[in-house]
Simulated scan of single mutants.
Amino acid sequence: MTTHSTQEVERRGFDDPDDVRDFEHGRAEVLEMAGGTIGRLVLHPGWRWSQDVKPIAGTEWCEAPHFQYHVSGTLHVQMSDGVEFDVGPGTVTSLPRGHDAWVVGDDDVVLVDWYGASDYAKRH
């Protein structure tokens, strides 16, 4: 017996994003699909939000909340309340507004972000 889906299927890859936002030491690749936005952030060694994205955002701390899966590399996060921690591959994070972050080590950090990508590093 063959079954057919009555819903529209979307299948996309980051090799053909709807938008690419380049910034110093990295880029955000954005897909618009299924009524939402998903982003892949590729952050190179030397990237730090407060140096590379803050001038674009114009805020003291990153005000984009994130819900991310960490594919590779190590990211150090500093919350505005002083809490700090490292995040590595295989970890899922839910970060509220008010943070800084930077790449630790010599490997690229790659993140898939289901929540904070819509306006991330978007020039207005």
Rank of each mutant, 00 (worst) to 15 (best):
A28K: 00
A64L: 09
H25M: 13
L111T: 09
W114Y: 11
A57H: 12
G82S: 09
G46R: 08
V71L: 08
F85H: 10
G88W: 05
Q68R: 06
S118E: 15
F14H: 11
T2P: 14
L95G: 01
S80M: 14
F23P: 04
E84G: 02
G13V: 02
F85D: 11
E24H: 12
Y69H: 09
V42L: 08
H124I: 03
Q7P: 00
E32V: 03
S5G: 14
F85L: 07
G39T: 03
D15S: 14
G13D: 13
W102S: 09
I38G: 02
W49T: 01
K122M: 13
V112Y: 12
Y69P: 01
Y69W: 10
T37C: 04
S80P: 00
L111E: 11
A34T: 04
D15G: 07
H66D: 03
R123L: 09
G13S: 15
E32S: 13
V110Q: 02
V104K: 10
P65C: 02
G58S: 06
C62H: 05
D119M: 06
Q78H: 08
Q51K: 11
S118D: 13
S118T: 13
E63D: 13
L41F: 15
S118I: 02
P55W: 10
I38W: 04
G46I: 08
D108I: 04
S80R: 15
D18H: 15
T6R: 13
H4F: 06
M1G: 14
K122P: 01
A101Q: 12
E32T: 14
V109G: 04
A64T: 03
R123I: 07
T74I: 13
G98N: 07
M79F: 03
V87M: 02
H70M: 07
A28V: 09
G58T: 05
P45Y: 04
R12S: 06
R40W: 02
P65E: 14
T37N: 08
G90Q: 03
V109T: 10
S118K: 15
Q68H: 00
M33P: 00
D18N: 15
H44K: 14
A121W: 10
Q78E: 15
V110I: 14
D15A: 12
R48H: 04
D16M: 07
P96E: 11
E63V: 09
L41R: 07
W61K: 13
R40T: 01
G82K: 10
G82A: 07
F23A: 06
I56D: 08
G73A: 05
Q51A: 12
C62A: 06
E29W: 00
D113L: 12
V110F: 01
T2V: 11
W102V: 01
V30M: 08
H25V: 00
S94I: 08
S72L: 02
I56W: 09
T3L: 11
Q7V: 12
F67T: 09
Y120L: 14
S50Q: 12
H124K: 14
I56C: 06
D100W: 04
S5T: 15
E8D: 12
T59S: 14
D113V: 11
G46H: 07
